[in-house]
Design a protein around this nucleic acid. Structure first.
Length: 519
RNA sequence: GGCCCCUUCGUCUAGCGGUUAGGACAUCGCCCUUUCACGGCGGUAACACGGGUUCAAGUCCCGUAGGGGUCACCA
């Protein structure tokens, strides 16, 4: 039975790299009929935890990564917040103290820091001489009399090696001598991460610890703790981190300014901002960031596309196959095929996967996804069925030009008459092209007299108009498109006009012609 | 600086001793076309370097270089 976990600290946001770690854990649990557990690592939290975990849980729900045990769903190992498990942590510390694997220490932080700095300056690694270690109750009392506060430190081995068997890295060996006597409990009795993490993993019966590689250096001390406590080792797998776009450093939420220098990343954010502003979304500067999953939800990405893209970041089945449904991911995923090197986050590939994923969905599914955006952008009235029918027609006609739900905001011209003209194109194709201008003006009259206004009828009418005028379609169609939509590109012209409607088409052509003459 | 990890096209990757080093995204060209997108066809583009081992090395070993992670009374 496999039990995996993802243990975020309550930061208020879900990092895209964290999602990948969670996905791999989730996949592992799901394929083996095991459990995926969510635990909140909030031992150091001073903020409102509920407020800070809610965005994370929302992210998981949106992505469809369900958890078998954890916040809100509960489970047999409650509680699932580290801060509420301090009794267990303290008991473990007492046990370590009793067995001699830990000791009470009275060094002041600044004293140790000074030693560390000296050691580093000398080019060696710091080894605490345990000068303030309390060997008995007497020495402890003496240190306390000096006004020192006692913490509990690990009494790490100083010879031999720690051998870690890692499912993605193989065997990793580390000399114990290089390890520090880490503090596991503060003077006020509260416990630190490594101790808490090991105890909780044990209590929650976690069998596989799958986490990002920045935890690899932490592993020896955690192994020391768990073996001292008599626990069985879990299986370890350290995943490479997700690297920044076009770089090799770890992707970080805080380096947004730097990533903006990457064109693809900047374009992605710009696209998001465009959608957000058109929809009147208030974007939280803290989370409206492509490093954070909220960003993708906000602008209409498809959860499955995020998952599929992340799956491919550091893992491959055979180097050929790239599209996976969730059941297929569950079926095929193995830690053995996870890469060892960091994979850089590529906004273009993400967008490509998103586009493919969205296009593969049914019209109904796409309409459903688009409604909130169209509604907020004021281009459709959710309460009116004819408005929704129209939206459906548009979504069908737009086809794969819609890469993500939020892209619908670019088709506002179909619904609102306040066109935003592409001035350069308007100047060239209408103002600067007198024959075309006269022709579309004349065409407006014929279009206005049609009995029906569907795409086929419009096309026939325009074709015969061209024949009668002895011009080619391409001589007028650009002017026609700009006059009626304001922009130079879109889906089929005749379908576009059909959606816009007869009266509005005629009015828009006249308005554009007038506008060009006036300017 | 110590310790640890990593290194195949620009990016994600396939490759587990013998390949014209494959695929995808991106990019470039052509075709399709009323625009854009899609689609089709084709092109450019990679084994970090140096030593070994071997008949044979992207694949194994050892170095070097480069990149990265981590060194808290954070998680």
């Amino acid at each position: 039975m496999i039990r995996t976990r993802f243990a975020p600290s309550p930061t208020g946001y879900l990092h895209i790299g964290g999602v990948r770690t969670a996905l791999f854990n989730w996949l592992l649990a799901r394929q083996a009929g095991g459990q995926f557990i969510l635990r909140i690592d909030d031992t150091d939290a001073e903020r409102n935890v509920h407020e800070a975990i809610e965005p994370i849980l929302n992210g998981f729900r949106w992505l469809g990564l369900d958890w078998d045990e954890g916040p809100e769903v509960g489970g047999p190992h409650e509680p699932y917040c580290q801060s509420q498990r301090s009794d267990q942590h303290r008991r473990a510390v007492d046990q370590l103290l009793a067995s001699g694997h830990a000791y009470r220490d009275f060094a002041r932080p600044e004293e140790l820091q000074a030693q560390r700095d000296t050691a580093q300056a000398a080019g060696g690694s710091f080894v605490y001489d345990r000068a303030w270690m309390a060997t008995d109750a007497e020495s402890a009392a003496r240190f306390e009399a000096e006004g020192r506060a006692g913490v509990v430190r690990l009494k790490m081995p100083r010879e031999g090696q720690c051998v870690i068997d890692d499912l993605v890295r193989g065997e990793v060996r580390v000399d114990w001598a290089g390890e520090q006597d880490h503090v596991i409990q503060r003077a006020d009795g509260s416990c630190l991460y490594h101790l808490a993490s090991v105890v909780d993993d044990h209590d929650l019966e976690i069998t596989h610890v799958v986490r990002a590689e920045e935890h690899l250096p932490n592993t020896p001390r955690q192994i020391f703790i768990l073996e001292s406590l008599g626990y069985q080792r879990p299986v370890y797998a350290h995943l490479p981190y997700v690297a920044e776009p076009g770089g090799t450093a770890k992707l970080s939420k805080r380096k947004l300014a730097k990533y903006l220098k990457n064109k693809d990343f900047a374009d992605l954010l710009a696209r998001g901002n465009h959608i957000a502003s058109t929809c009147g979304l208030t974007t939280d500067a803290d989370t409206f960031n492509p490093v954070i999953v909220d960003f993708y939800r906000e602008i209409g990405f498809t959860p499955h596309a995020i998952l599929n893209y992340l799956l491919l970041l550091g893992w491959s089945l055979d180097g050929e196959r790239e599209k996976f449904t969730i059941p297929e991911m569950i079926e095929h995923f193995t830690l053995g095929r996870v890469n060892r090197s960091p994979a850089s986050f590529d906004p273009q590939k993400l967008l490509s996967v998103q586009g493919d994923t969205f296009a593969a969905q049914s019209i109904d599914a796409r309409v459903e996804a688009v409604i909130p955006f169209a509604s907020r952008a004021g281009i459709v009235d959710q309460t009116k069925t004819d408005s929704l029918d129209c939206l459906r027609t548009v979504v069908a006609a737009v086809g794969d030009r819609l890469k993500l739900a939020g892209d619908i905001v670019d088709y506002g011209y179909l619904f609102t008459d306040a066109l935003i003209y592409d001035e350069v194109a308007f100047q060239k194709k209408i103002t600067g092209d007198e024959p075309a201008r006269l022709l579309i003006s004349k065409l407006a009259v014929s279009l206005g007299s049609l009995d029906k206004f569907d795409a086929a009828t419009i096309e026939a009418a325009v074709q015969s108009f061209c024949e009668a005028e002895q011009v080619k379609l391409k001589q007028i169609i650009h002017a026609l498109r700009i006059a009626t939509t304001g922009v130079t590109n879109g889906f089929g012209m005749f379908e576009t006009l059909a959606v816009i409607g007869q009266k509005r088409t005629v009015d828009r052509i006249r308005a554009a012609v007038q506008r060009s003459v006036a300017t």
